[in-house]
Design a protein around this nucleic acid. Structure first.
Length: 137
DNA sequence: GCCAACGTTGGC
DNA sequence: GCCAACGTTGGC
């Protein structure tokens, strides 16, 4: 079985893809949604992740990879949620905007489009390939 | 266990 | 700034 693909959202004001490139690696914690947490738990080291800017930018801007699989989120006092670690892979040649994704019928079933508030979601192999094509990379 | 009220996220 | 979606909380 091959690696899985994912998408994570981040507000660039809080943590942008450029911040990830600067840091080289970061703990992806603070997720407090059960559906998103299930996806975090399913991540394996080496899985690739689309990095999406929410609130500002509204576009997929880069690719990251899972550098460490799920472990207890130290910022969750109740100990219910998990974190992973992400590392940058590359920024996209062209950002792929939410508007462009919405305008692409083949992407209509993407989890992040169907459930807009989900901060961590799976991406199918076909959707992954298409989005990278849209990014011109 | 149901459901109304409330809080948060995120697009517009 | 507003509102829709949706998750969580708390009274019953």
């Amino acid at each position: 079985m091959g690696a899985s693909r994912w998408l994570v959202k981040s507000e660039p004001n809080t943590y942008s893809y450029a911040d990830l490139e600067r840091d080289g690696r970061t703990v992806w914690d603070g997720v407090r949604n059960n559906a998103a947490a299930l996806h975090l738990k399913a991540m394996q080291v080496g899985d690739e992740v689309l990095f999406y800017h929410s609130q500002e930018g509204l576009a997929v801007v880069g690719v990251a990879r899972v550098a460490r699989a799920a472990f207890p989120d130290a910022s969750d006092p109740a100990g219910r949620f998990v974190a992973v670690e992400l590392a940058p892979v590359r920024s996209l040649k062209r950002a792929v905007s939410l508007a462009d994704m919405k305008a692409t019928p083949a992407l209509a079933d993407m989890a992040m489009l169907r459930q807009s508030r989900l901060s961590v979601s799976p991406v199918s192999g076909a959707d992954w390939t298409l989005i990278l094509e849209m990014a011109g990379s």
